[in-house]
Amino acid sequence: MYAVTGATGHLGRLVIAALLRTVQAAEIAALVRDPEKASDLVARGIEVREADYSRPETLGPVLSGVDKLLLISSNAVGRRVPQHKAVIDAAKGAGVKLIAYTSLLHADTSLLGLAEEHRQTEGLLKASGVPYVLLRNGWYTENYTASIPAALQYGAVLGSAGNGRIASAGRGDYGDAAAAVLTAGEDQDGRTYELAGDEAYTLAEFAAELSHQTGKSILFQNLAETEYKAVLLNAGLPEPIAAMLAQSDVAASKGALFDQSHQLSKLIGRRTTSLRETIRAALRG
């Protein structure tokens, strides 16, 4: 039995879709906070189990009978460590045989502010005694294509990444990788995968590709961290998220989102989705 936490999120749904290519629906449990959002999964024959990271009492029973668990990191930045600990403790109590955790690219050395909670979670996994595998995901290209409407409106891609090269990949690539690890025949215990796209680009190159596909002149405007944070706040983002994104861009300028090991494409057996393809898909809507 395979279980996926956060199964109604963007990544969770993609992992389940990838699992269904090789695994029967009856062998998959979707762990979700709100079962009403998972009716489509139920329709596909997948067992939906209510589980909430912040309610530890819900976790033990829903992990009963689970062999391999994908722990998709919580989106509650600042509260992730206790939430993840609750899942790890429950998995240990339920006898789960493998936990795959979606960590962060080069989490052990990363300059990204986001890395600390991932480092702590990795430490919890190591101390738990439960077999585990780390999926250190790089940036999703969709993190940047989400800003395309604003870029088209104002004629500029804004950020603080300077000339830093970003080896991102499509969210679906990471979903395929998680499914590949969960279903692998080889023992995965103790492995660490540094997952990033085959293609790296600067935000200036991102803007150039967007210009090429739309026929509009889109420039990259590099901002100081405080300026970029202010832009994000003005766009309506909560302060912690705006601060996190601005700091992440600055870290990207120093190489925090770059990797050329090609472990992701090796794991999924194909090249990762190109920047061109992801921009094209975003423009199609």
Rank of each mutant, 00 (worst) to 15 (best):
T5I: 08
A7I: 04
A7S: 14
L11N: 07
G12K: 06
G12S: 04
R13T: 03
I16W: 06
L19H: 04
A30T: 01
R33Y: 10
R33S: 03
E36W: 12
K37D: 02
A38T: 01
R49Y: 09
E50K: 15
A51T: 07
R55N: 10
P61R: 08
L63Y: 10
S64V: 10
S64K: 15
V66E: 13
L70F: 15
L71K: 08
G78S: 02
G78P: 01
R79V: 09
R80I: 08
Q83I: 10
I88N: 03
D89V: 07
D89C: 01
K92G: 12
G95L: 12
L98Q: 10
A100Q: 12
L104T: 05
L105K: 05
D108G: 12
L112T: 02
G113R: 13
E116H: 02
A127R: 07
S128N: 03
G129V: 10
G129C: 02
P131F: 09
P131M: 08
P131D: 05
R136I: 05
W139V: 13
T141Y: 05
E142S: 00
A150E: 14
A150K: 11
Q153E: 15
V157M: 12
G159R: 13
S160R: 03
A167W: 04
S168P: 00
A169S: 07
G172E: 13
D173G: 06
Y174W: 13
Y174I: 07
Y174T: 06
A178Q: 07
A179R: 14
A179I: 09
A180R: 14
T183E: 04
E186Q: 14
Q188I: 00
Q188A: 06
Y193M: 00
E194L: 01
G197F: 10
E199A: 03
A200L: 00
A204L: 04
A207L: 06
A207C: 06
S211C: 01
H212G: 08
I218K: 04
L223G: 02
L223V: 04
E227Q: 15
Y228A: 03
A230R: 03
A230E: 14
V231M: 09
L233W: 03
L233G: 07
G236Y: 04
G236H: 10
E239A: 08
I241Y: 07
L245I: 11
Q247D: 13
V250A: 13
V250C: 08
V250I: 10
A251L: 05
A252R: 11
L257G: 01
Q260G: 12
S265M: 01
K266G: 07
L267T: 04
R270Q: 09
I279D: 00
A282G: 07
R284I: 11
R284P: 01
